[in-house]
Write a protein that binds this DNA or RNA. Structure first.
Lengths: 336, 336
DNA sequence: ACCCTGGTGGCAAACGGTTGCCATCCGGGA
DNA sequence: TCCCGGATGGCAACCGTTTGCCACCAGGGT
């Protein structure tokens, strides 16, 4: 309640007094341009600037019920796959006058619950990426504040997803074209929507081409997880296989593990990633991977959530699907 | 003002009515345990739970002047050097009951100003990492909300910095020990405090050992920037040099560029990075780099800013200095 | 029997904006 | 001359919590 630590705060009342007008006029001078006489407004602006007035966002939020903040909640801030998503969402938010905040759930459903709990009432909308929560929990949050899901199809919620089917198709066809007849999927987190999606598409397309598919895992969707996948694969390995990772991180870890064991990629085993993160072309061999325009995903998701925050009724047709493409690099080759 | 979109909100008034008590009692039942009779409190809790009551953070903030949010403002969320910083700060924040939000300035002083502007009034404290702003601007922000600087010594502000001098020392001594007599510094952003610090220390220690030092740049502190540094170095190169990057990203870019040009690292040129990011051991050759306990940095910074937010008077002695060490990997070797 | 005290609960005034409604002023048209 | 309406500014209620202060009650000490 008290002006602690000398960190005072100028209010519209101070400005009003200094400018010789009523507080409401000061308020309108800022939030309702045109509603007050141009000269009066100018004088108020001048006085406010001189006093260093800054509107108190909490007070404003209290009476308008909008905080002008947007949250991007994601599983793991260190996962490069999310970088462009964040950038895209940030651009859209800034453009619309919203402040974007990031919160991470550390790949844990429990932390996700806490984070959403702590965030929901503080923002006007949430872009939820890489969720590990059940649909019901997400709907619960959506009752408090609009949610747009990324890479996850939640019934009744708008969402934007990358075209995993197509990603799986080009991956399989690429490997098939190289002569592979067996593909192994390195599975990510079980609660992950794209994991199930990826696996089903992979299996489907592989069958169409008469290829055998296996699935190993689940593993953590990190380099460490990929290393574990690789180590496990090294026991009971079969030559000439091709591995498809849940994401780039896992693919990279897999490569590390098998390389360390003396095998060669792609000569002994082909590896395909997913996400086309910046590390994909840093490593040796450079990683063949599926790319998606995550910046667009972020932009679209943020734009949609802003529309909802502004009162649009959830149009909710189908999820927005953005295209994927295969980036062929060095980690794939014909089987030995 | 209106309950838009059916997203209603239960208030303490609703709870009070349902429980047959006054709103103030409901408030106290939550924020002042012990101040109200245990049985009454229990009844209120029950009613509140049943109604699904959630306190409105804006209203609470308005009357307490605390938002219970902390911001970590950093130059670039995609820079792995910040990952552990964020994790450490997050842990400390959560532990103290604060919600942590992340905001990025995209390495731009202008964006940094906007971000700080938008953030300052919404949080109880700011951990400012990789700032590009002048001291005066930071002090300005500090008038609104406590700021703790990371890797930057701002007069009059608490800060936590990694021991760059020691990092420079071990780097130079390592190279000197390998037989190098010349070191080239790949400079990062000019407005970056650690850049100047690193360079001065490097020069100082190199002189002590009778080594020649050069500085090239500045470049962007990214892989791209490193690539540019490498390309530029390739013209007018001298053999046997050793390059020290502003950070790992630049070092990695440098290696890429010279490798692409047919040179060998470390045979033709030794390279040392800074930060020991996760990519450092992913690339080939694995990168020799200086490591700092960034998680501790984040934890300490957040803890300090929380103390200040709670009213501690800035004790402000010297900056907190955390140790650094050299991680020797494959990118350094005796000169050809 | 009386006063004091500790334990509880309620009243009402903040916190700093926004906004519906009303009063006033002014120029113009009839 | 009178009336009307647009432009402008002020009043006061409201957003949902917190909290200082007071009222009330029961029980214990004297």
């Amino acid at each position: 309640m008290s002006r602690s630590g000398g960190r005072s705060a100028i209010t519209i009342y101070d400005v009003a007094a200094a400018a010789g007008v009523a507080p409401s006029t000061v308020s309108r001078a800022f939030s309702r341009p045109g509603r007050v006489n141009a000269q009066t407004a100018a004088r108020i602006q001048a006085v406010a600037a001189e006093l260093g007035y800054r509107a108190n966002p909490q007070a404003r939020a209290l009476s308008t019920t909008r905080t002008m903040m947007l949250a991007v909640v994601l599983a793991d801030v260190t996962n490069p796959a999310f970088f462009d998503l964040v950038r895209g969402a940030g651009a859209a938010a800034t453009e619309a006058g919203y402040t974007l905040v990031l919160a991470e759930t550390q790949e844990s459903a429990e932390r996700e619950r806490d984070v959403l709990e702590a965030t929901a009432a503080r923002v006007d909308g949430i872009v939820l990426a890489g969720s590990r929560s059940p649909d019901a929990a997400i709907h619960q949050v959506n009752k408090v504040v609009p949610v747009v899901a990324v890479n996850r199809d939640v019934r009744g919620l708008p969402s934007v997803v990358v075209d995993l089917e197509h990603g799986a198709r080009v991956t399989v066809e690429h490997l098939h074209g190289l002569g592979h007849r067996e593909v192994m999927y390195l599975a990510g987190p079980e609660a992950s929507w794209p994991d199930g999606m990826r696996w089903r598409s992979l299996r489907q397309v592989a069958r169409e081409h008469g290829m055998r598919v296996r699935r190993v895992g689940p593993y953590e969707p990190t380099v460490q997880g990929g290393v574990r996948a690789g180590e496990q694969w090294l026991d009971g390995r079969r030559r000439g296989a091709a591995a498809v990772g849940y994401n780039d991180l896992m693919a990279i870890g897999f490569i590390r593990a098998v390389t360390r064991a003396g095998l060669k990629v792609p000569d002994d085993v082909s590896v395909v990633g997913f996400d086309n993160t910046s590390s994909a072309e840093l490593i040796t061999p450079e990683l063949t991977t599926v790319a998606a325009p995550m910046r667009d995903v972020g932009r679209i998701a943020a734009t949609n959530v802003i529309a909802l925050a502004r009162g649009a009724t959830s149009t909710r047709g189908e999820p927005v699907v953005v295209p994927t493409r295969l980036v062929e690099r060095e980690s794939t080759a014909p089987p030995a």
